[in-house]
Every structure is written in C-alpha cells, then in structure tokens.
Design a protein around this nucleic acid. Structure first.
Lengths: 239, 239
DNA sequence: GTCCAATGGTCTACCGACGACCCATTGACT
DNA sequence: AGTCAATGGGTCGTCGGTAGACCATTGGAC
C-alpha cells in the first residue's frame, strides 16, 4: 500500500530545464523588487556560480530577458547587465483563463502563502533584529507607501520578502519568493485600486510596528488579516 | 544596489544531479513512511514519469538503494521494487559534528518547519475534511501511538505529513516533507526516550482532535507546543 | 596617453541525462 | 501446458549543459 502523500514525495524532481529555471529566477529578482530598475545584476561569472548553472546557460537566459525588454547589457569594466528603467507591462491575460490554468493551484498557493507569511511575521517579531535589519524594514515600508501605482506590486513584494528575510531563515525567504511569484500572474490580472492600496499600506505599517515591538501575536494577527484581504479579493474576482 | 534578499533569489537553481535528487526522493519516501516496509514502489516506468527523470536514471537510483539495503527488486509480472522489512540503521554520527555541518541550517530549518507545520495544523482544522481524510488521520495517529521504538520516527513523520496533506495544499505537503528530511539526520543523532514518546503521543492526540473538531486556534497552539518541544530538545542536545 | 582590471562575448571538447527500443522473467489465467 | 500482460534488465544514438579557455570592449587610474 502506498500512502496518499505519495504524490507529494513522488513529484517531479525538476520542473523545466536549467535555462527556463534561470529565466524564472531572474524574473523573480526583477518582479519581486530584489533588483530595482537601474540596478546592475551581479557579474555573469559570479551569478552563474551562485545559481549553479554554466555561464553559457546564464547568458542565454539573460539574452531572453534582453529580448523581452527587461534588461540591457554593457561591455567593459564598470559594464554589466542592468535592469531597464521602463519594464514591460505584464500582459493582462483574462483572469479567468489564468485561474483555470492554475486550477487547484490557486488554493494550493494561497494556503502555502498563508502558512509561510504569517509564520514569517511571527518569527520576525520573535527575533532580536539588528539595527541594519530594522532600518531595512522601515525603508521598505516607506518605499512601498510612497510607491507609484504602477510600481506598487514590486515594492509590496520587496517588503513582504524583507519580512521573511529578517526571520533569519534563508529557506523561508526562498519559499516565500517562490509562492509570491506563483500568485503574481493572478494579481496582475486584478485592477489595482487606490483605495485598496491605502488599506494595504495601513496594514503594512501595523505589521512592521508589531515586528519592531517584538510582539509575535500582533504581528501574526496583522499579517493574517492583510493576507486574507487579498485572498478574498483573488477568490472573489475569479469566482 | 542589490537588496539583502538577493541570496534567497540567487540561490542555486538545482542542488545536485538528477541521480542524486532521485535517490534523495526515494529515501524520503522510505524514511518519512510514505512507503512502508514490504510495500511496493510504483513501477519503474510510472515512477520515472512522475519524477520526471529518465528510466535509466531512476534505475541507477534504485540500484544505489538496493546496495544500501533499503529495497529489493523482483522481475516478472506482479514483481516490482519492494521496501525491505529490515531497514539499515541510521548511522549515529556524532551529533555535534552534524550540527556543525548544518551550521545556521539548523535554525533555518527549525524556523521554516515551525511556519509550515503550525500553518498546516491551522489550515487543516479550517477545512471540512472528507471521511476518508479523517479516517486516514486517525489511522496514522493510532499507528504512531502503537509504533515500536525503532519505527517511531517513521510513523511520526507520516502522521505529520498526513496533517500537511489534509490541508489540500500539495506544495505545503512537499515543503513539509523536505524540511523534515533535513531535520531527520539530526533527530537520528538524539536518543529516543520512552518518556519523550509518551509525551509526543499525547500531543499528537490533542492536535488531531483539534483538527477533527474544526478548531484552528487549538490545533495551531497544540502543534506549536509539540514542535517547540523537539526544537528545545535539538538545540539543547547540540549546545 | 598608456595601462590594465573587470566585464560581456565566443568557441570547443566532453559528459551525463534522455528517449526509444528490445530482451528476459514471472505467475495468474485459460 | 500454453498464453500473455506487466514488470525489471539492458543498449544505443542524440542533445543540452558544463567547464575552461580565449577574445573584445570599456573607462578609471596613473
């Protein structure tokens, strides 16, 4: 007899080839605000080492992103690959089509995100943060509050990622980044309202305040509410 | 400028080759109790498809596990690859050596596990479970309570995995399986005491009861306490 | 003006994983 | 006793990814 959990453990060992995975990662860096427009990516040799792919593969991925309009490369010392100031607009594919593609994946991602991000908020509040970490959190919070509508998603993502990061768990941060990317496509299909943004910013402030005040329960609670808001929005919009 | 979260998003795209990953997965299935001693693994062709590796690679992995004493293969119809009744003992490497190898990885894994498993308990209690799911949970609970000392870890893992599974999130289940494997090595280095097991079983019962009673808060709380117990044990033993 | 270090751009030989195919074995069913 | 479907066992050509070396370009330092 094979337990029902078998499809979790017998899932594909790799999803896609190194090239595709690398493209995905670079997109993650850009779309989640890890590298901002104008920023330079690490040098090819360094980046290839960190991603554990050959330089050839990395270059192919960069080439793909160049053609898609995300980055541009310059040669010479002090050269490098830079994120474009004007990024391609996410194509507004019909939300329902995307939803159908995701299928059960939507609930899958929402449940996972809930566990990861509420857990992150609680863990972050449980830690004694360094001054640099506190400054980074507040910086991300302020940037997000000041972000233009078209940039909002990116700054929002970076803030959430920053919260995951100050837990000190690299794995948690990585998992959070992954699940956010999965939800990105759907979120892009939903119109962003000023009203929602204002509310979102208020919640962000509460979350960060609770983390800085070392209040795990409040941090978790605030994050929970924040997430349930977008979850309801998503499910409702796609219903 | 590159944000501090860069090492989460620029982490290796793949850890090890397909062969190694496949071995790791099969070990996961065995050590986490997804396939029990005497059970048959899925047929090579099926399993290769599900794992998304070539049959050649899968067979090499199986061969490795055969030599390590985990499985045995029989040919012919109604043949297959079976998990041995007597599994190899985990080698009791000095705990402190392992701890040093893991390094910050211990905290990393503990924090992630906390988020995933408390989140899973809460999510499971929030769902309306089918009769089959409820039966499976109770079955795993009873099996774990009745498990011999040498089998305890396996049944314990299967129960925790079952809780993750009834959330309905495959990703959450997969992540839980992964992080448990990472902690496995360390747990194997710690002597298992009857007293600890009894306590653990009590907590398991409380957790499952809360899930079946659709009480998310209680489920989370109980899981939190359960996990913090082993976390303290781990950190203390390796201090 | 010259130098040179760091960067992107290119090529080549090699290898591991893959896919597809066929063989060998087994035991339930007829 | 014969059949045959399902399974493990094995082989071969192909291709994508890798490693490593080398070339081309740029702009600051001297």
């Amino acid at each position: 007899m094979v337990a029902p959990a078998d499809d979790a453990v017998f899932r594909p060992v790799r999803t896609g080839n190194p090239f595709e995975e690398t493209v995905e990662r670079l997109l993650q860096a850009i779309k989640l605000g890890v590298v901002m427009p104008g920023d330079r990516l690490p040098a090819e040799r360094d980046l290839a080492t960190r991603l554990n792919v050959s330089r050839v593969t990395l270059r192919e991925a960069i080439h793909a992103l160049t053609e898609a309009g995300y980055v541009e490369s310059r040669r010479g010392r002090y050269g490098g690959t830079f994120v474009n100031e004007r990024l391609p607009k996410p194509r507004r594919t019909a939300a329902k089509r995307i939803a159908r593609e995701l299928g059960d994946g939507l609930d899958d991602a929402l449940i996972l995100r809930d566990a990861l991000e509420t857990g992150a908020a609680e863990a972050a509040a449980n830690r004694a943060l360094s001054e640099a970490e506190e400054a980074h959190l507040e910086r991300c919070l302020a940037d997000t509050a000041a972000a233009k509508l078209t940039d909002y998603r990116r700054f929002d993502s970076r803030l959430h990622l920053a919260i995951a990061e100050v837990t000190g768990s690299a794995s948690l941060t990585a998992a959070t980044a992954d699940v956010r990317m999965r939800l990105n496509e759907l979120l892009d299909a939903i119109p962003l309202l000023e009203r929602n943004i204002a509310h979102s910013n208020d919640q962000h402030a509460v979350i960060v305040a609770a983390i800085l005040a070392d209040d795990p329960e409040a941090a978790r609670q605030a994050m929970q509410e924040h997430l349930s808001g977008t979850a309801v929005l998503l499910r409702g919009f796609l219903a």
